[in-house]
Design a binder for these strands. Structure first.
Lengths: 122, 122
DNA sequence: TTGGATATATCGATAAGCGATATATGTGGG
DNA sequence: CCCACATATATCGCTTATCGATATATCCAA
């Protein structure tokens, strides 16, 4: 009836945020607002501005992305690009992310199959 | 080099905790300490006692599990069993958990493939 | 009898997420 | 021309919640 509770959903999302933001940048430069929309579109969940911009600043401080303002597009936008370190980080973090889910799936998915294939009150 | 940072790893784990605990109970009754070990074994991550017991109490308060003490085993142990509501909850939460993962994978995995199949500094 | 594993439980300092808020420009419609 | 809404970035500290620390007790092996 209920499904995954909001807290769990938020935690899953939060734990995937960095990896998703780096993933969005793999195809080339993006600016904050466009990253926000792409992640929303892909994941179904919204990165709030109050979370996104601090994260972007941290990624920049860590040298995983670099940023530059571009005003010629009409609007002022701050474009972000993966640095080589950011590409490395995307590679290892995404692999870890996948591995973590794979491990946990080994517990959750058999249970799901089991509970799905017999009457609940049996 | 670094992989998924600790914060992300913890958030992912935390967001999967409830589902994993319910999943462990699908095969029959377990007590706190055994749940802790089974989740550790399956996920590679430890539920700290300070997180596990409050969670178990909450699940019980929510009617998803029921508990009874059994002392005849030698040791006093508090055994937990899924209630019908808990089985329903496992079913829907595990399905949601999987779906959330699948959606985010749609963003992360293509990026991982891409970054893996070309030189990082290219 | 000492130490380590087993077993459950509580609690509050500490850390942090993000809602709220601020600022400013572009744009479509009435 | 002005209103409302979408676009775009940014900061801050109130509120919330985690879990390290701690307490208690039994069992077993060395």
């Amino acid at each position: 009836m209920n499904g995954l509770n909001d807290k769990s959903r938020r935690d899953l999302f939060r734990g995937s945020l960095e990896v998703m933001v780096l993933a969005v940048l793999v195809d080339g430069k993006q600016y904050g607002y466009s990253i926000q929309k792409r992640v929303k579109e892909a994941s179904g969940q919204m990165i709030k501005a109050g979370s996104l911009y601090p994260l972007l600043h941290r990624l920049e401080a860590d040298g995983l992305v670099k940023a530059h303002w571009e005003s010629d597009t009409g609007r002022d936008r701050k474009w972000y690009t993966l640095t080589p370190a950011g590409q490395q980080q995307l590679k290892s973090a995404a692999a870890d992310w996948q591995a973590a889910f794979a491990r946990m799936s080994g517990l959750v998915l058999p249970a799901l199959r089991q509970i799905t294939h017999h009457r609940v009150t049996e």
